[in-house]
Design a protein around this nucleic acid. Structure first.
Lengths: 348, 348
DNA sequence: CTGAAAGCGCTTACAG
DNA sequence: CTGAAAGCGCTTACAG
C-alpha cells in the first residue's frame, strides 16, 4: 500500500563498488552526510552552501579521491569541456611550418590551464571536413579554433553556418572572428629597414598568392616601396617550404642578378633563399641582405642568423583562446590584429 | 487504479524540440515506427534487426540527420571514444623536432579514420602530469599514447599503475608496451656505410645521454666500429636542436681536426653540424662526409642534402595505434621494433 | 542553505 | 527479432 518505497534504497552504491568503478557523487554525499545536490553545488562554485557542509564535502572529496564523470556532466550541461583545434590544410606539410606547431602547443597549454581539453582534427580533405562538422554538430566540442592558411577555405563558411562558436587564426574575410598578426605592418617594417640600409634593388620572395598572409605581406612590401617597386623583383613561392624558397630565389637571381636585398615572406622560405644565394656565390649580408618573417626557431639557427619579423605567437594563441572562450560564454569578442616586431640579427 | 500509466507519454520529444536540440534516438524511433532499443541496435552493429526495421531506421536516420550524443553513450558504455596523445617533454622545444609533429599528424589521422578522436596533452611539468593522470582516471580517455623521449619519465610508471591502456613511443624499459624504430640497427647501418666510404676518422655527434634514442644510436655506432672507436671522436649533444649540433661539432673539430666523417644522431643536429663544418672551412662531402638520422623534411633541404637513416614514421604511428587499440579491446599486443633504412643523398 | 526528484540521451539485459 | 524498463552519474529548478 505504501507506494513511495523506492525499489532498492541502498543497493546502487554497493553494486557499483562491486564493479570496481570510481567513487561517484553519491559516495561522496554519503560520506559527507549531505545530499547529492549539495555535493554538486560545491563542485560547481560552492555558492549557497554552508561552511559546515562545505568542509564536510571537501573532506569527503579528498578522502574518496572523487573525480567527476565528464560524460554525465556533459549530458546535462551540454558542455563538453572540449575545444577542437582544426588544421584546415592539405596534409603534407601540416607541421613542416614551426609556426603551426608553436601555436598548437600554446593553445593546448592555455586551454589545459583553464580546464578544457584540446582535440586535434585534420581537415585537409572533404571527408575530414565532414567529420569536423559532424563532430561539432554532435556537441562534442564547445567551440573550434580554425587554423586555415588558405583563402576561401570552405570549412570556415560551413562552420559559421552551424552556429558553433568559432574563431579563426589568420585573417578571415567572412563573418567569423579572427586573430592574426599584423602581416602587412610587419612587412612594411622589414621593407623600410632594408631600404634604410641603403639598398636599392630590393626583391621579395612572397608567400603563395592564395594565402592571406602571403597577400598581406606582399601588400606591405608594395606599400613601403611605393612607385619604386619593380615587378621583376617579385616572385611568389609555391608553398611555405625551404625548397620553394630556394626555387623562387633562383628565379629572382636569374631575372635580376643585380638585386642587393630581399624580403622573404617566411623564415622557412628564407632558409631556402639563403641557400640559393650562397650557392650562387653571393655573400650574405655582404652582397645581398635578407630579411625573413616569423622569427621561428630556425631563424636563429641559420648561418648567418636571420634578421626577421617576430610574430607575437604567444599573444596570438592567447587571443585565440580568449576570443573563443568569450564567444562560448556568450560574450561578444572582436577580432584582433596583433603587432609585430623587427628582430635584427646578422643577415641584414 | 491502472498503475502502469507513464506520467507524460509523448511530452518529452515535444519539449526537447522546443528547445532546439538536435534529433535524438527517440525522434528517429518515432519516425521509423520502432522502439528506441531497435534504433540503438542498428546504430551499434545492426545485428538482430529485421531487414524491414533496418531499412526504416536507416531512412529515419538520414531524414532526421541524427547524430549520436557521445556523452550519453559514454555514460553507459564507459568508453569515451577518445585517445590522449601525451607529450612528456619539457615544453620548450616540443615541436622543434619535426619527427614529433609528423607522428602527431599520422596518429590523428589514423585515429580519426577509425572513429576516435585525439586529445593532445602536454606533460612537461608535475602539474601537467597530474592533469594527465586525473584525466585518465576520470575515464575521459580510453587509452594513452605516451611520447616520451627521456629516460626515466615518471609518467610512464604512474600511467602503468592506473591500469589504463597505454603504449609508449620509443623504447620503454618498464612494463609498458612500446613501439620504436630500430635505432641501434639504423646507427649500425649508417656507421657501416661511412666505413665503407673508406673513412677512418669517423666521429659521432650522439644524442643526449638521457634519451633512449640517443643511447641506442650511440650503441649502434660502437657496435659497428668495434675496437676502432676513439672516445675523442664522440660527443653528446645537449639536446636535439640545430644549435646543439653546431656546438657539439665545434667541440669535435677542435679536439680532432683530422676527422673525415661524422654520424649525427638526428637530422636537426646534423643541420647544425653541417653549419659548423662549413664555417670551419671544411667541404662536405669532400673533406668530411656526414650522415644524419630521421629523414625528416629538413634532410633533403640542406646543402648538400643529407644522407640519413629513415625512421619508418608511418609504420610507427600505425603500430602505436594498433597496439593501443588492441590493448583497449582487451587483446594482447606486443611491443614492436621497426626497421630503418639508409637513404643516400649527397652529404655522404 | 538543502533535499527530493526529474531529466539529460543512450545501451543493454530481460522477456517474450 | 523487438519492446519496456532500468540505469549510467550528474545538474538544476523546485520547494521548503
Amino acid at each position: 500500500m505504501s507506494d513511495e518505497a523506492p525499489p532498492h534504497p541502498k543497493s546502487r552504491g554497493a553494486a557499483r563498488r562491486a564493479q570496481r568503478r570510481g567513487p561517484t557523487i553519491e559516495d561522496v554525499a554519503d560520506l559527507a552526510g549531505v545530499s547529492r545536490g549539495t555535493v554538486s553545488r560545491v563542485l560547481n562554485g560552492a555558492h549557497h552552501v554552508s561552511p559546515a557542509s562545505l568542509a564536510a564535502v571537501h573532506q569527503a572529496l579528498t578522502q574518496t579521491g572523487y573525480v567527476v564523470n565528464q560524460s554525465a556532466r556533459s549530458l546535462v550541461t551540454r558542455r563538453s569541456g572540449t575545444i577542437a583545434f582544426v588544421l584546415s590544410e592539405p596534409q603534407d606539410r601540416l607541421f613542416e611550418d614551426p609556426v603551426l606547431a608553436t601555436l598548437l602547443r600554446s593553445c593546448t597549454q592555455l586551454l589545459g590551464d583553464q580546464g578544457s581539453s584540446l582535440v586535434l582534427m585534420l581537415a585537409g580533405t572533404p571527408a575530414e571536413r565532414a567529420r569536423v562538422l559532424t563532430f561539432a554538430r554532435a556537441g562534442h566540442t564547445d567551440g573550434v579554433l580554425l587554423v586555415s592558411t588558405h583563402t576561401g577555405d570552405p570549412l570556415a563558411a560551413q562552420l559559421a553556418e552551424t552556429g558553433i562558436p568559432t574563431v579563426v587564426c589568420g585573417r578571415e574575410p567572412r563573418q567569423l572572428p579572427f586573430v592574426a598578426a599584423d602581416d602587412r605592418g610587419g612587412a612594411r617594417l622589414m621593407t623600410r629597414y632594408l631600404m634604410d640600409r641603403d639598398r636599392h634593388r630590393i626583391a621579395t620572395v612572397a608567400g603563395p598568392a592564395d594565402t592571406p598572409g602571403g597577400v598581406e605581406r606582399l601588400a606591405g612590401f608594395r606599400d613601403e616601396l611605393g612607385d619604386r617597386v619593380d615587378e621583376r623583383l617579385i616572385e611568389n613561392a609555391s608553398a611555405y617550404t625551404i625548397s620553394a624558397g630556394r626555387e623562387a630565389m633562383d628565379l629572382l637571381l636569374n631575372r635580376s642578378p643585380d638585386l642587393d636585398a630581399v624580403f622573404v615572406a617566411s623564415d622557412l622560405l628564407a632558409v631556402g633563399a639563403l641557400q640559393a644565394l650562397q650557392a650562387a656565390g653571393r655573400t650574405v649580408p655582404g652582397d645581398v641582405i635578407i630579411g625573413g618573417f616569423d622569427d621561428s626557431a630556425i631563424a636563429s639557427a641559420t648561418a648567418p642568423p636571420l634578421t626577421t619579423i617576430r610574430q607575437p605567437l604567444p599573444l596570438i594563441a592567447a587571443g585565440l583562446v580568449e576570443v573563443l572562450l568569450d564567444r562560448i560564454a556568450g560574450r561578444s569578442a572582436d577580432s584582433r590584429i596583433l603587432p609585430t616586431e623587427l628582430v635584427i640579427r646578422e643577415s641584414a
